[in-house]
């Protein structure tokens, strides 16, 4: 069942789903509740504050099935950002949010929570390079 991952890995991927029997704020707060044993009220307050950064506090109590692609991406990103000194890895963002024309919204979302993570990596196909409008893209 177990697979070793870096302790501060905050993975955002279509292969790492949200927990279907938890609502939005609990999906995000789960890591804080589990690792920091933070009180539920405190965790909820933090999560609602973070959602508010994206003007999405109304989705806090919703189930995952009620969210669209962008909202799911945001929840996954915030969940990843809950890891202490997180190394956020976004796996193929255009698979997560297929209807995005470019990566501007992705970049914007990362900027809004830059106080929460230590580092961030975006992994994507080389043919999507132009959609990022950034120069220091490393290819492997």
């Amino acid at each position: 069942m177990k697979e070793r991952h870096p302790e501060n890995l905050g993975l955002v991927s279509t292969d790492i789903p949200l927990i279907s029997n938890l609502n939005v704020w609990l999906n995000i707060a789960l890591i804080r509740l589990y690792h920091l044993s933070e009180s539920r009220l405190q965790a909820k307050r933090v999560v609602v504050g973070l959602l508010n950064r994206f003007q999405k506090r109304e989705i806090a109590g919703l189930r995952i099935a009620a969210l669209d692609h962008w909202e799911r991406y945001l929840v996954k990103l915030l969940r990843a950002a809950m890891v202490q000194d997180a190394l956020i890895v976004i796996d193929r963002p255009f698979r997560l949010v297929p209807d995005l024309p470019d990566a501007e919204l992705i970049e914007n979302s990362l900027t809004r929570i830059d106080d929460l993570y230590f580092s961030c990596r975006i992994l994507d196909y080389s043919w999507n390079r132009d959609r990022y409008r950034i120069k220091d893209v490393s290819e492997s």
């Binding site: 991952h5 292969d15 789903p17």
Partner: peptide, 24 residues
């Protein structure tokens, strides 16, 4: 519930965030 979580890889998600499935 557990079978669905296993099929939908939710248990893997817990593992990625170092949440012990036994505990949680």
């Amino acid at each position: 519930e557990v079978a669905v979580m296993k099929v939908s890889k939710e248990l893997d998600a817990l593992n990625v965030f170092r949440i012990d499935a036994f505990d949680y």
